[in-house]
Amino acid sequence: MFIKKLLRSSNAALLFITIAVTLLFYIFNNNYLNFDNVRNILNSMSFVGVLSVGMTLLLIGGEVDLAAGAEACFSGVVVALLINAGVPWGLAFFLTVLFGALCGLINAFFINKLGFMSFIATLGMMSVYQGLVTVITQSKNIQIPEQGFWVIGSISLWNVVPLAFIIMLVLMIAYSVVLSNTNFGRSVYMCGGNRHAARLCGINPKKISTILYVNNGVLAAIAGVVLTSRMHTASPAAGSSGAIDAITAAVLGGVSFLGGAGGMSGCFIGILLLNVFNAGLTAVGFPSYWQIVARGGLLVLALCLDFIGARSRRLALERE
């Protein structure tokens, strides 16, 4: 039943592509699937993965946060400063998450109170955050000597599956349940699918949007903290492409850019494909600069697929 359902969904095709791409790279470079590299892929995946969970929710609700990467980076800096100031790392983590929520609240304020378009407000905030990070760090990395904090980013199951990946997976499963099984989750779809109709059902789209932005800020903070923990440093350049990567992954996985459609499983496969692809390019010896181009190209491709999908859905409707 489950398998049948999976095979019928568009995610199946994407999953096959992912497997095919993986095998292809494996053929070119047999080291591609060794433990170290797999762990690397899973690790780098988890950062964008956590970001894309928040982004997926926003996109389904018809919103977007271009500052997600900058928020994560800023959160990394905040946690580093707190720990280096002697705050126990657990508390520092918690405070950083609160900080992320605040970032989300600021976005929500501009969008829901002042009525800015979501992308322009978050774009403005992105440049504010980037600037603040540069001011605080003076463009230098902040080392974190506190070894206890390193744990989050460094332990892994059977030496292959890192904790960060497990965090991402747990978040994805949890949010997938929220999306399909709670009133809130369904409200998100309604807001993205037909805002006016949602209002007629007694849903307050501004409230939903605010929750989504705060939630996204929290997730960005978590992503930032986990990344910082793995690196043992907060870097002002970390996660600069986070928002674009998260959008790319989500849209690749079938989350419509126009809102109202998609889900977590697609987002997961999107992340997988994105990272397998990136790591694969490295493994077969492509210069890293090309990966930046490839990332943009992949986003265009994902959007094309989204466009074609939306059109074929519409045509199917017209035929009926």
Binding site: L66, I244, I247, F257, I292, V293, G296, L299, V300
Partner: peptide, 20 residues
């Protein structure tokens, strides 16, 4: 495409070419 997302993708591609 919505202009902002299309041009955002282009921005990312051009950054890559600059580095190349």
């Amino acid at each position: 495409f919505q202009p902002f997302i299309a041009t955002l993708a282009t921005a990312s591609i051009t950054q890559g070419f600059t580095s190349i």
